[in-house]
Amino acid sequence: MRSADIYQAIADNIGKVIKGQQPAVRRLLAAFVSGGHVLLEDVPGTGKTTLAKALARSIDAEYHRVQFTPDLLPTDILGVSIFDQRDQGFHFHRGPIFTSILLADEINRASPRTQSALLEAMAETQVSVDGMNYNLDPLFFVIATQNPIEYHGTYPLPEAQMDRFAMRFHLGYVEAENEIAILSEQNRRHPLDDLKACAGKDQVLALRRQAADIRISDEIKAYIVDLIRATRAASGVLNGASPRASLALMKASQTLALFDGMEFVSPDHIQELAVPVIAHRLMLDPQARFAGITARSVVDEVLRQVPVPI
């Protein structure tokens, strides 16, 4: 199958379960295929868990869910070495992180130590425990969630750590007709239970390789860099986006181009992903925050002002 069709199949499959969230699904798949991780910042009950499960089912991949609580320890995620009396040796019991798709629910409720354990593992794609390195799944993909409203008992991720996520976006509440459709469909059985796989892990890995082959002209690269640099110069921003952001934006745009069946990246792809990729990496001046500037508004402004290649 052509890559665009593979993507479309997966998206449609997920769409059977998650209604009315096509743009979010598109972004999620773009991050997934490009090898980045996703932070979903959303109010409870919008279907984040369902989304992760649907994705895992669609590509027949392993799926784990970790509920972050204040007393969660790093070993609870990574795994722990247990002394086996019979062998008189330590055996490493793998934690939930050794999976294809990990849903880290309410990551902001764990202590900073636990958060960094996960984030480091994400960055290095391997876990070091007791001097031994254990590699993670090649398709390792983290969907972390954060509840933006609650603050009681939370440790919001510091901006420096946010950089590790390729994208941050939210699902949000759906349109009325979609919500009605949800009620109709989930009356007796959850559609998730009936979901079948429509692609395989190796196909996804192939997509990843193909995405890296998508052509991108120097002018588009220069446009990406212009955007990133503009965020550094924007007013109210203490720390703009890093080159990691440019990389993430490029890779994700290539993936989108692949999904659209194009062989090259167009400026529209860049603009579609600019806010999800860049906004969460900006460190705003606290005064600016109190003056009403948000990261999203900064990126929107940059998109408007920086001349786009025509």
């Binding site: 167009s266 400026p267 603009q271 408007r304 002002q305 920086v306 001349p307 786009v308 025509i310």
Partner: peptide, 20 residues
């Protein structure tokens, strides 16, 4: 085509791609 449209007064905003 772009020039013709602009001549007729349909302005393109600086950050707007041609497709948009």
């Amino acid at each position: 085509v772009i020039a013709e449209l602009e001549r007729r007064g349909f302005d393109r905003r600086p950050g707007e791609t041609v497709a948009a």
